[in-house]
Computed example of a mutant assay.
Amino acid sequence: MALTKQTIIEKIAEKNNLKPAEANDTLETLLEIMKSTLASGEDIMISNFGKFQVNEKAPRKGRNPATGREMMLEKRRVVVFKCAGGLRAKLNKS
């Protein structure tokens, strides 16, 4: 089961004694800050959680799976997440 945006809003509202609309605004603000930061090419580092990093992928040869025709895929930027040691320890706690 995945954690949904709605569940996050409910948990923020409950833990901070907020109305759901206020929690939604808080989450939307956070997500907008994160999106604009990543879009500008900057990384996001959250202590004891991890780092969201923008990586450049070079152009490469690819293949259309429907037709089998070769094609060149353009360069693109992707976001990768690297887990912090604190989160890794919590995930692997026995």
Rank of each mutant, 00 (worst) to 15 (best):
S47A: 14
I46Y: 01
R88H: 06
K82F: 00
K93F: 05
N64H: 01
E70K: 05
F52N: 10
R69G: 02
L30N: 05
T4P: 11
S47Q: 10
K90S: 12
R69T: 13
E56G: 07
S94D: 07
E74A: 09
A39Q: 13
E56N: 09
K82D: 05
Q53Y: 00
G85H: 08
R63C: 03
A21W: 00
I8S: 07
S36Y: 01
N17P: 04
R60S: 05
E56L: 03
E56R: 04
E28T: 15
K57C: 08
R77E: 05
N24S: 13
N55F: 02
V79R: 04
R76I: 04
L38V: 09
R63K: 13
A84R: 14
L3G: 08
P65Q: 09
P20D: 06
P20H: 06
T29E: 11
G85Y: 04
L30H: 07
L18D: 01
N24L: 01
I8N: 12
N92L: 00
K57G: 06
Q53M: 05
A89I: 04
V54W: 03
I8L: 13
M71K: 15
F52P: 12
N92W: 08
G86P: 01
A89H: 00
M45A: 08
N92Y: 03
L18R: 00
E10W: 01
I33S: 15
K15Q: 10
K75P: 13
E70N: 14
T7G: 10
T29G: 08
R63F: 03
R76Y: 06
L30Q: 12
